[in-house]
Design a protein around this nucleic acid. Structure first.
Lengths: 166, 166
DNA sequence: AGTGAAAGTACAGCTGA
DNA sequence: TCAGCTGTACTTTCACT
């Protein structure tokens, strides 16, 4: 489904919509240098082929009362596929866990969590994460401050790469 | 600027727009149970007050040729504020670094990076990150597979919390 | 290009301090 | 009474064929 090669206009569309996902189609068309109708067709195609997986408002977590952000490194006792999948399923159920990635190296998973305050994170940690079967070790690191948080991918890197390849 | 308390309708708006940032205003108004004009006014206010920081299309990094995702734990030689800020500034310049968070504990920063392939990440690692002054240690972990990647915050947790407080 | 729908504006009515 | 929010009516702009 998602194997069609993208032309420079498609990539520009993706870059613009990543930067401003609520841009109108006419504005988008103007920026990428084509007229509105074909621009809309391209967007629809990109959505259908899975290049665009969704659109999201970026909300201010702190203003909404999520004061705490924590990274948790999790090691499992068993790394059998069944057990890995079971842990991933647990993570999908926990709302405070926003991201879960399986890693190589010493730790098995890294979790990015948010919480209203430290005590509610602690109760998640001791009540949920640490009591989950097969969880052998958890090392948590509190985020002191955020320095950069960009969504998606760097399109300028992609363009440079395609230039040098051609 | 951003201290106004939110009512249940505002929170519903934020939750809906976080889930689908390109929803039309009339659809949004229908879902939150008010008519379109006041709904649009609320959205504008939420944007101005900073509760909504932007809208972004979620693009498929892998399909676009960013096959590799890496977490890097960085330790600095000096943790003086000037040196911390200098490193953060560097991170903002590097396009492959998508996120940079200052942590407590043994490591100073965690970086979330993307790259087209392993070799281009290696050249960033050895050519940029490791040659940066004051960088004392870097431990990288490759993401084997992603298990969860939700944007923003869990609004259901927020609602539960507000109920019990009241 | 043209139609139908949505965004955005102006104004008037309602509600609660 | 007055501030603030809501809904109706209308114009402009956009989405879509």
């Amino acid at each position: 489904m998602a194997g069609t090669r993208l032309d420079p206009i498609d990539r520009k569309i993706l870059a613009e919509l990543q930067a401003d996902g609520r841009m109108t189609n006419v504005e988008l068309a103007k920026r990428v240098g084509i007229s509105a109708p074909p621009c809309l067709r391209r967007v629809r195609t990109l959505e259908e082929q899975g290049y665009i997986k969704g659109y999201h408002a970026e909300v201010d977590a702190r203003e909404l009362g999520f004061e705490v952000q924590v990274f948790a490194m999790v090691g499992l006792a068993s790394q059998a596929e069944v057990d890995l999948s079971a842990f991933e399923a647990k993570c999908r159920e926990w709302p405070l866990v926003r991201e879960c990635h399986m890693l190589n190296g010493e730790v098995d998973f890294i979790l990015k969590c948010v919480a209203p305050d430290l005590s509610s994170f602690q109760s998640f940690l001791t009540g949920d994460l640490l009591t989950t079967p097969n969880v052998a070790s958890v090392k948590t690191s509190l985020v002191i401050r955020g320095a950069k948080d960009e969504p998606g991918v760097p399109f300028d890197v992609l363009e440079q790469r395609l230039e040098t390849q051609a």
